[in-house]
Structure formats: structure tokens, C-alpha cells
Amino acid sequence: MLKRLLGLKSRPDAADRLYAHAVAQARDVRFYAGLGVADRIDSRFELYVLHVQLLILRLQELGDEGRDLAQRLFDVFVSALDNDLRELGVGDLSVAKKMRKLSEQVYGRMSAYEPGLKGGDETDLAGALGRNVAPEASAAGSALAGYALAAKAALAGQDVRALIQGPNWPEVPA
């Protein structure tokens, strides 16, 4: 009742569900056990960025409704980052500065991945993913690039409803 009085959401909307799907996929143990991505907060962050970006790119292809949902998904992602900082004990006075830095990292990663994802350039994408996601596992960049391009292709065949219900992600290479 208090949530209703304060105007807070009681059920997740489509953007929340999409974000939850991206996070669940990014947490797939095969990224860490099979590909050699380090199971650390920074590596998980990198995989969250990749999966959110894959969904955003697909949604942007679906007209005005998709672009609106893509923006809402991005907003949910940024809000989740803010909440995570607070849960990690970052004080209110420091959150804005840390969020600015995280936002720069998100935009930087998305800018680095977008050309390879849109153009299907596996070499360029492998370099960017290798530097950011798994710098200590040299083969992981190539495997991640192949996975990301397969994910982009798989998402291309799915409409908004299918994405919201649960994207059909490709297998994570082992």
C-alpha cells in the first residue's frame, strides 16, 4: 500500500525485465569457467554492458517503440549501477563522482563495441572485448566477439515481446 501511495512501481516493467535478462545472461558460469573471464565485479560489469548494449541495438531497430524501450532499458541499467554503489557502501557524497566515472566507462565501452557489432567486424570487436573484459585471458576476446556477433544475429530474429519474455541467447562457448 505504501508503494502505491508514494507512486512506486510494484511490478517490474518491460525495461526492468530486459535488464534482468541481460544480467542473468552475463552471469552465465560458462563465461567465467569456460572462457576464462575473471569472476570479479569489474569483469561482470563489462559483460553487463555488452548484454545491455546487444539488447539496446536490437530495440533501436524496432522503430519508435523499440527506441523508447531501449532508452528505458539504459535508464534502468544506470539506476542499477547507482543502487549497486550504494549497496557497496559508497556514501551519498561520493556517489555522484563515482557514477560520473561509471557513466564514462559505459559510454566508452559501448562506443568501442558498437562499430564491431554493427559492422560484424570480429577482429575489431575481439580487440575491444579482450582489452576490457578479459585482458588476462588472450583467447577470451576472440571467443567473446564470436559470441557477441552470434547474439546480435540471434536477437535480430526476435520481436519486442519475445525479448521481454526472455531473449533467446546463443550458447556461450565452453
Rank of each mutant, 00 (worst) to 15 (best):
V23S: 09
R131N: 14
L18Y: 03
Y107A: 10
Y147E: 04
D64W: 02
T123N: 08
Q105L: 11
N83P: 04
R27T: 00
F74P: 02
G130Y: 00
D42C: 05
A154P: 06
G36W: 05
D84M: 06
L55A: 03
R17W: 03
F31P: 03
D159K: 05
P167A: 12
E122V: 05
D42H: 11
L88P: 03
D42N: 12
P173F: 12
V172E: 14
E104A: 10
G36S: 06
K3R: 15
E136A: 12
Y32C: 11
V37E: 08
R58M: 02
L125F: 04
S103Y: 13
K97L: 13
K98M: 15
L55T: 02
A15E: 04
A145T: 01
Y32K: 07
A139T: 12
V78E: 06
A24K: 08
V23Q: 02
Y107H: 11
R86N: 13
L163H: 05
S79A: 09
Y113Q: 00
G89N: 10
L73Y: 04
R44F: 04
L149R: 01
V90D: 07
A139E: 13
S138I: 02
F77I: 07
A137R: 12
Y48K: 00
L54V: 06
A151V: 01
D92W: 02
A15R: 03
K101H: 14
L144I: 07
D121N: 10
G89Q: 13
A139D: 09
K118C: 00
A134G: 07
G91L: 13
G116A: 00
E171F: 11
G141E: 10
R161L: 08
G120E: 03
F45R: 10
N168V: 10
D75L: 00
G127R: 03
V172L: 14
E136V: 01
R44D: 10
M99I: 09
D13V: 12
D92F: 11
L50S: 12
G66M: 05
R11W: 10
F31H: 09
D82K: 12
L81T: 04
S79K: 04
L73P: 05
K3V: 06
I164N: 07
L93C: 15
L8C: 11
S142K: 11
A80C: 06
G157E: 13
A150I: 05
Q25G: 01
V37C: 15
